[in-house]
């Protein structure tokens, strides 16, 4: 990685914001899951950038990023399993229609 840390952090913040917007704006459970993955990957970019540019974190950033990727994969697995389970019940991926418990 070359350049300066701030540029990477701005990019990471931008990706994170896009993910947040996607999560709040989309109503499809799969799209919301993808938005969360985008947020996590944006954080990973920030972690790798910190690992490269902050002397105290030399070498640690990449290791932490690997752990985060593993966790994100596990999260996606559980999430997709739950989406499939509810799709079998409701025949729709739209979260607005999951409203049988409103008070």
């Amino acid at each position: 990685m070359t350049g300066n840390l701030d540029a990477y952090l701005v990019l990471s913040g931008l990706l994170f914001s896009i993910g947040t917007f996607g999560f709040l704006a989309r109503r499809n459970a799969i799209a919301m899951l993808m938005s969360v993955e985008l947020m996590v990957n944006a954080v990973n970019l920030a972690i790798v950038a910190f690992g490269t540019f902050v002397p105290e974190l030399k070498g640690q950033g990449t290791v932490i990023a690997l752990f985060v990727m593993a966790v994100a994969a596990a999260e996606a697995t559980v999430g997709l399993a739950i989406v499939i389970a509810i799709y079998r019940n409701r025949r729709t991926p739209l979260v607005d229609e999951y409203s049988s418990m409103r008070d």
């Binding site: 899951l33 969360v36 999430g79 739950i82 509810i86 019940n89 979260v95 999951y98 049988s100 418990m101």
Partner: peptide, 15 residues
């Protein structure tokens, strides 16, 4: 249906 509905809301906001 209620269990999976609770789970997906918990999962989405949790993640």
């Amino acid at each position: 249906g209620l269990s999976t509905e609770g789970a997906i809301k918990y999962f989405l906001l949790g993640s």
